[in-house]
């Protein structure tokens, strides 16, 4: 399998990005069989899973964002080397993927697409929303990001630029949303509560201080 000789500076090109563990594959097999027998409907399963959205995975990303809001040095590190900055908190991807943090500013909003395969960094971001995996979302987000965001209830001023980031096998993104106004007195734990999953993929904004509870 390692017969390529002329790609010396590329590592791990034989590594498959998509891999199911035995138990993951067994779950898919059960789903296939039960769907074929008409006993379950994948949409109903997705709906149940989605109700546990915040209960799946450690959602470490929210703590990363809260720290970046509170500590300019950490924000700077995150900007220059997100993989190391995130790893410093003890959060590492399962496949050693590289992370890049993209910061929302008054001028620019960032939106991440692609999560169709198994490389979505859910250990950092939590479970992807069901609709996010749908091929129409991916293609539409690239063509008409403003329209897609509008549908999610995120209406941005026309003057604000939208940048769309498409993950690759080697690089995954986390959006650092803008810190909401009126949160100066909050500690990092309270700030982390404002950071929704959607705000870290750019399909939402961080909650306002008033929405927190």
């Amino acid at each position: 399998m390692t017969s390529h000789s002329d790609d010396g500076d590329h590592h791990d090109h034989d590594h498959h990005d998509n891999h199911f563990s035995a138990v993951q594959a067994r779950v898919k097999a059960l789903e296939t069989v039960l769907t074929q027998k008409g006993l379950i409907d994948p949409a109903a399963i997705d709906a149940i899973v989605d109700t546990y959205e915040t209960k799946i995975g450690p959602r470490n990303g929210a703590r990363v964002v809260a720290k970046a809001w509170s500590e300019p040095d950490f924000a700077g590190w995150l900007r220059s080397d997100a993989t190391a900055a995130i790893a410093s908190l003890g959060y590492t991807g399962r496949q050693g993927e590289h992370m890049r943090a993209v910061f929302n500013t008054p001028e620019t909003h960032n939106l991440v697409v692609c999560t169709l395969c198994s490389c979505y960094p859910w250990s950092v971001l939590g479970l992807p929303p069901v609709w996010y995996k749908a091929p129409p979302y991916r293609s539409r987000a690239v063509i008409d990001p403003r329209g897609v965001l509008d549908e999610f209830g995120v209406t941005l001023p026309d003057t604000k630029k939208i940048r769309v980031w498409d993950s690759t096998a080697e690089l995954r993104y986390i959006v650092i949303p803008e810190r909401p106004f009126g949160t100066e007195s909050l500690d990092q734990q309270a700030l982390a509560d404002l950071v929704t999953r959607d705000s870290m993929i750019g399909t939402g904004l961080a909650k306002s201080a008033g929405e927190a509870r």
Partner: peptide, 29 residues
């Protein structure tokens, strides 16, 4: 509802499907 054989067969099939799916494409049986 199903047999062990069928379940094992499908499990292996899903594993091969995952390996064969390029990045960015949905993993389908």
């Amino acid at each position: 509802i199903t047999s062990w054989d069928h379940l094992d067969h499908l499990t292996q099939s899903w594993q091969r499907a995952a390996e064969a799916t390029p990045h960015g494409k949905p993993i389908l049986l």
